[in-house]
Structure formats: C-alpha cells, structure tokens
Amino acid sequence: MIKLSTQAETQHDMQDEPTRRDFLFIATAAMGAVGVGGLAWPFIAQMNPDASALALASSEVDIGSLQPGDQVSVMWRGKPVFIRYRTEEEIAAAEAVEVSDLPDPAGRLASDEEALATNEARSVPENPALILMIGVCTHLGCIPLSEAGEFGGWFCPCHGSHYDTAGRIRRGPAPENLPIPQYEFISDTTIRIG
C-alpha cells in the first residue's frame, strides 16, 4: 500500500511561484482547448447538406398537358411541390376571402417576403389559374390531401389542418400558409423550380 503525499506537495510548489508556472499551464490548456474545438468542427460540419445535395437545387416540370382540375406533384429537394390548375369555382372561392380574415396574412412567397396572402399574389403570374407551392404541411411536415377539407383546397390528415384553394391555412394547428418556392418559366410550358 502506497500513500501519496506527492500531489499535495506539487500543488504547494505551484503556490510558491505562481506566475510563470501558472501562465505555462494556462497557455497549454487553452491551446489544447482550441485544438479540440477545431477538431470538433469537421465532425459537426459533415452533417450539413453536402455539395451534391446543394447542387440539386432545381427541378423542371412540363405543365403543358394540365387541364382545369388537374394537379401534379413534382419532387424538389426531396419534397413534393404541388402544381394545380384550378377550376373557376376554386379561383372564385379563393378570391372571396379577405386577407385580414386569414389566420396567416403573409403571402409566404420565396420571391417576395413582403407580399400578402391574396389569391393574386399566390397564383402563378403567367397563368393565374395555376398555383405552385410546397406540399408540406406547415404544422409538422405531413403531406396534405388535395380537394379535401372544409375549404375545398387541401387537408392535412395528421392533425386536421384545413387549407383553402389558394393553399392558405384556414383552420387547424398549422401556423402558416403553404410556402411558394422560387420558380420561373423557362419555356411556355416548362417551369423550373428552385
């Protein structure tokens, strides 16, 4: 059995001459901490979207064959984007609501953060019968069903969020309107999303 008194004595030494010794120990420990921190960064950063995922930022879709009442879903960044050619009734229903009555009056356009959630703002400018938005419920990420819910737009079956025919939240737990991504027409019938 060995009893150790050495450590206490070492500490005693340190107290004898605090400045140089303390500075050395602190500098070493600080530099070690910097090293560990620097080493940690690659292990954290590796979880960010990688270069190939970032490069897949756009999808193209041909909407030439859409008829009123048709809807297509295209994948963009791993999420569905709804493109719906709305009927006259659906457009009329969307027009009939005052923005001030909406739970979320913001337009949620990626192209214009100031816009209000009017039907006009959310419609596709080139063809206002069309609406294009990310088909992911703003509550917890489920995919809403189309032509469903109390407002004839979309209905999220997970927690009962009702969206109208302009994709605006009207009732239920979802906090925001369905977001509209950046897109552009690259020909008369082809839209590039992203």
């Binding site: 070492t10 030494d13 050395l24 120990f25 500098a27 070493t28 530099m31 070690g32 090293g35 620097g38």
Partner: peptide, 20 residues
C-alpha cells in the same frame, strides 16, 4: 504548425511538472 507549437508548450509543461 499548431501541433508543433502545442507540443512545445506541452513539453515545457512536462519538464516543469517533472522537474522535481
């Protein structure tokens, strides 16, 4: 470069600790 400088500091610390 970091390891060389850090190694130098650790070496001095080690010398100091073992000096007694």
């Amino acid at each position: 470069a970091f390891l060389l400088i850090f190694g130098g500091l650790v070496y001095m610390t080690k010398r100091r600790v073992w000096s007694a």
